[in-house]
């Protein structure tokens, strides 16, 4: 199956996976400047792929606006989520489980 991702704004540094992504070429739809990007790891459906290298502290741009900032260097083609970025407002969300989104700061004792 062809792998595709959707770029909603031409200035964005991430795109959203429309299919599950594996290492390999991903076709870009929407307002993309280039026809494809090379995925370097597994990225789940609906999650974001870095369209270029993003350095620590740099803003993550989607819809042409900042949706958070990088907490580490993000190589092009890799998965952009809670493990490498955080909200500029919601401090709690960067501590959630990266796969399930479940809270890790509430004790179940």
């Amino acid at each position: 199956m062809e792998m595709t991702a959707f770029q909603i704004h031409p200035e964005d540094n991430v795109a959203t996976a429309l299919t599950p992504l594996h290492p390999g070429d991903v076709m870009l739809r929407g307002d993309a400047k280039t026809p494809s990007v090379r995925a370097v790891e597994e990225i789940p459906l609906g999650h974001k792929i870095a369209l270029r290298g993003i350095t620590q502290g740099e803003k993550i741009i989607k819809y042409g606006v900042p949706i958070g900032c990088a907490t580490g260097d993000i190589p092009a083609g890799s998965w952009v989520h809670l493990h490498v970025m955080k909200s500029l407002y919601d401090e709690r969300s960067s501590h959630l489980d990266v796969n399930t989104g479940a809270p890790k700061d509430t004790r179940y004792e």
Partner: peptide, 8 residues
């Protein structure tokens, strides 16, 4: 978050 949104 599980569906791919990373921030509010």
């Amino acid at each position: 978050f599980a569906g791919g949104l990373s921030t509010i």
